[in-house]
């Protein structure tokens, strides 16, 4: 029986689960779409990974990250809950020798992380704007009726990229439509879009930052060969896409859970049985004061597991002790 660590990354677009053993070997990884239903995605992911890993395992620790990390930790029973920056940084540090820059583009956010002397020394994340992230690419691919998997390959075929505005997704889209109606080739437009998104990334996030190699490109969008090529052209250096680029956040969680387990051998993991449980979510607007908090209640097989969303803590604290509490 192997000791294992479970890493879960619940993002806006995908939910990723990784199972790692004591030797930092990846036993299994699952990349599944969140599709607006994170709880189902977690259950589905756990079910698949259980199937994929065909041996006896003992989960010693669970780590969660991503925008749905609190939810994931509550459902699965997490030991460590960490932000995506730290998780991605730790994963890259462990899997890519001497990495100095991480470019990460996910479903709704994009980030640049600078690592110096083995620690995170600076980072930036997109602010209110999600232009140039995975969900925008998804949308454009759907609009042009191209499978997202083929998007990058098409861009590589381009010989004469057209210029697309990259500052704003709305402008980018109208630019693309304009160029398409002029009769430009689809691959040239797609390559133009890749260039625009890279330009936008470098101007916004990487502004004023020293990008030193090795540069690692991870996150779901790293699967897009077109964007990767545009990055290489813009930076004038090689960009590495690690083998498990799409689940690096989850890998970071495994590593964090492993570190945590050294001091805390008792895990909160609720077992793989949760895949058979029925989850319900009830939402309501608390009208007791003018804050009008949106309170969420999560039930597992009819029992309340957690409540959150209230600013005053009234609903959260009303749960009897022993039930998971979250701010």
């Amino acid at each position: 029986m192997q000791n294992c660590y479970l890493g879960i990354d619940v993002g806006s677009v995908s939910t990723n689960i990784v199972l790692m053993n004591d030797d930092k070997e990846i036993l299994g990884k699952i990349y599944t779409k969140t599709q607006g239903r994170p709880i189902e995605a977690i259950q589905r992911g756990l079910k698949e990974i259980k199937k994929e890993v065909n041996e006896e395992i003992k989960v010693k620790g669970v780590g969660a990250t991503g925008s749905g990390r609190n939810l994931a930790s509550m459902i699965v029973g997490g030991d460590v809950v960490k932000n995506e920056i730290t998780a991605h940084g730790i994963a890259a540090l462990n899997f890519v020798d001497g990495v100095k820059t991480i470019i990460e583009i996910g479903g709704q956010d994009s980030k640049i992380i600078l690592l110096r002397d083995g620690i995170i020394s600076d980072f930036a994340m997109n602010t209110v704007c999600a232009a140039g992230t995975g969900s925008f690419l998804d949308r454009q691919a759907a609009r042009m009726d191209i499978a997202i998997q083929d998007f990058g390959e098409l861009a590589l075929k381009s010989e004469n990229a057209v210029r697309i505005a990259g500052r704003c997704a709305v402008f980018a889209e109208s630019d693309m439509i304009h160029k398409q109606q002029l009769g430009h080739n689809q691959e040239d437009i797609i390559k133009g879009l890749c260039d625009a998104l890279v330009r936008n990334f470098l101007n916004n996030l990487a502004k004023g930052k020293e990008i030193l190699g090795p540069v690692v490109f991870q996150g779901g969008v790293a699967a897009n060969a077109g964007i990767m090529k545009s990055f290489e052209e813009a930076l004038g250096q090689e960009v590495f896409v690690p083998p498990h680029h799409e689940v690096m956040g989850a890998i970071g969680c495994c590593l964090l859970a492993k570190e945590h387990a050294v001091k805390n051998p008792q895990t909160n993991f609720k077992g793989f049985d949760i895949i058979n449980s029925g989850y319900n979510v009830k939402g309501m607007e608390c009208k007791d004061c003018s804050n009008l908090c949106e309170v969420i209640e999560i039930l597992r097989d009819g029992t309340v597991m957690a409540r959150w969303g209230d600013k005053c803590g009234k609903w959260n604290n009303a749960l009897k002790s022993g039930v998971e509490k979250l701010a």
Partner: peptide, 30 residues
Amino acid sequence: PFLLITVDEHTGEAGVNTRLEAFTDMLEWR
């Protein structure tokens, strides 16, 4: 280290929390 947080009418705190947590993690690490 410098972190910019932009607020508007959105009430989702996840984005702010993530950035703050990552920022303080980084400072402690440094």
